[in-house]
Design a protein around this nucleic acid. Structure first.
Lengths: 131, 131
DNA sequence: CTATTTACCTACTATGTCAATAGGTAAATA
DNA sequence: TATTTACCTATTGACATAGTAGGTAAATAG
């Protein structure tokens, strides 16, 4: 299940897309509009900055803003940055060691197909699509 | 992410599909073939029995067996029984109270579409498809 | 140059879920 | 009656989730 971090991150990105053409948007404003504590959002924007999806600017007149145009962000990359990866099962997650049963596992192809479908869906959907 | 309970349940169902035409299959045998502790599988088959996907029989010659033919089980119902539900976000999970932001939430339609895709995929796939 | 506003940083915590283990009782058969 | 099986309740360690608390650093306005 997608955690609050992933879901809130998406809402932050949408909020920035809607308000940042004028410049930097303070987190305080986003927190109020999105009705999420500013403290918790700090954790989220930190990851978004680290992932180069947004950039921050300190001091008066500061805040956060998008690095690209909304149509240049896929939902998938936003969620993936927040959740670590979007594998459906542990055996297929990025840092997992090869399962000894992989070759004869009858369920593995199913999970691969599932993951591929999910990936295609989330990466073809853009931030601008839900604006 | 699909938990071990969901994944192991699927493997138990497959194991039964492969071995139960002759009658009841003891859990001990399944545990050995699947390389999962019998103790842990007990929890899983308990849920499968409760969900009427398999039935058990005690005593010598006992074990577990499928209630229907493999093509009559969808992967979705197996996973759903084990995971509780297959909602992608808390707001859409079965027992969730209505979110006050639901009407104006820009992300909700996305999650609905996502859930619907996942549901279609997992319910159209049958146990017999991965046999 | 000072006050204010903002981002940015480290640490902490309560709660819950996951993945299992332990140690039994009940039922059916040989 | 002994054996084999399912079935039941309780417990546990580890980890993730969803936050909170209390600061420091940077930038701007006056």
């Amino acid at each position: 299940m997608i955690s609050t971090k992933g879901r809130y991150a998406l809402r932050v990105m949408l909020d920035l897309a809607e308000h940042s053409e004028l410049g930097f948007v303070p987190l305080k404003d986003i927190a109020e509009r999105q009705e999420v504590s500013k403290k918790y959002l700090e954790i989220i924007v930190k990851d978004l900055v680290k992932g180069k999806l947004i950039k921050g600017s300190s001091g008066k007149g500061g805040g956060y803003t998008l690095c690209r145009k909304p149509q240049e962000y896929s939902i998938g990359e936003i969620i993936e940055i927040m959740e670590g990866n979007l594998a459906s099962v542990a055996c297929l997650s990025s840092g997992a060691e090869e399962c000894p049963r992989a070759k004869r596992c009858k369920t593995l192809p199913l999970w691969r197909e599932y993951d591929s479908m999910v990936h295609d869906f989330l990466y073809s959907k853009k931030l601008s699509d839900i604006l």
